Amino acid sequence: MKTLYILHILFDEDYFKVKESRNFTGKVVLVTGSDSGIGAGIVKLFSILGASVVVTGRKAPSVHKVAQEIQELSPYKLKPLEVVADVTKTEDLKRLLSATVDRFGRLDVLVNNAGIYKFNSIEDQNITEEWDQIFAVDLRAIVELNHLAVPLLEKTNGAIIDMSSIEAMKPISKFLAYNCAKAALDMMTRVLAIELGPKGIRVNSLNPGYTDVPNALLPKELVDLLKKSAPLGRVAFPLDVAKGVVFLASTDAQFITGANLVVDGGLIWTMPPL
């Protein structure tokens, strides 16, 4: 009876800990492609929740702009680390991680958000060139960065979140390479969850639907069609996606690994043929 009572008390304490599940004070979060769009939304939310963040992208002005915004949002006015890097270059990935450790001494959360989204078809004359370009950014770069980050994340029982898409689950014409790259990314996430679980590292993917960001690829008429067909009557905003990422990184998800979290307002079920 005494043993059962002790377990019950510990169990209740765990319930109370949930109140602090979104407190990332003292945690270090690296988000690739965080100088615009969804990535910028993710680092902003992590900063508001107390984390030290790394802002990275290929253009220094946009990286600096987001970093300035984030410092103002931080409750502790923490200065983000700014790193200009190309995720397809091995030397840049190594520099990105070494700069993170030099500044913060650790890495707790890696969000693989950088990616490209292009129209292409099997009938395109340069389909293999387009295929290689998309797979280089949307899959190979993520494999390499995950590989390089494992020793750091093992020290912190960290988390990896791979940014996928509902197009990994629902094929769409004219997005051949992108659909295939994201489907492969989801499978990689599951394999890594098995491999890295014993090291204390959780690996999940987040699958957003269409997200309303500046300079979007789809024309306005098509976006309006998606809004009308979505069960919740709108498409996603970066904050919707960021909330999903924060959940997967939080202690609320400490028993979730190898999962796909779909954040699309139900669009996957009602999206018309495009």
Rank of each mutant, 00 (worst) to 15 (best):
I70W: 06
T88M: 13
G39M: 06
V29E: 02
R140D: 07
F175P: 00
E144T: 03
D86L: 08
Q68Y: 14
V263P: 07
L222A: 07
A193P: 15
S165V: 00
K59N: 14
N207R: 04
E167R: 07
T32K: 08
A114P: 12
S229W: 01
P61E: 13
V29W: 00
T251S: 15
I122S: 09
T25S: 15
E72D: 11
L192I: 00
V143N: 02
S36A: 15
T3A: 11
A99G: 01
T25E: 15
F135E: 03
A40P: 11
V84I: 13
A193C: 15
P61A: 08
R140T: 09
C180Y: 12
G50C: 06
V245R: 03
V66A: 10
L73S: 06
E195M: 13
K27I: 04
N23T: 09
I201Q: 02
Q125K: 13
P61F: 05
F119V: 06
Y15F: 12
E13P: 01
T90L: 15
L145G: 02
E154K: 12
K227G: 06
L78K: 12
E129T: 14
N179R: 05
Y5H: 05
V87L: 07
T156M: 05
N215W: 14
L196G: 12
A149R: 04
A149W: 09
L145P: 08
V101G: 02
G265D: 04
K65N: 09
P75C: 01
S165E: 03
F24Y: 11
L4W: 11
K174L: 12
V53W: 03
P75M: 02
F255Q: 03
H8Q: 12
V143M: 13
V235C: 05
V54Y: 03
L274G: 07
L96N: 02
F104R: 00
S47E: 08
K65L: 11
H8Y: 11
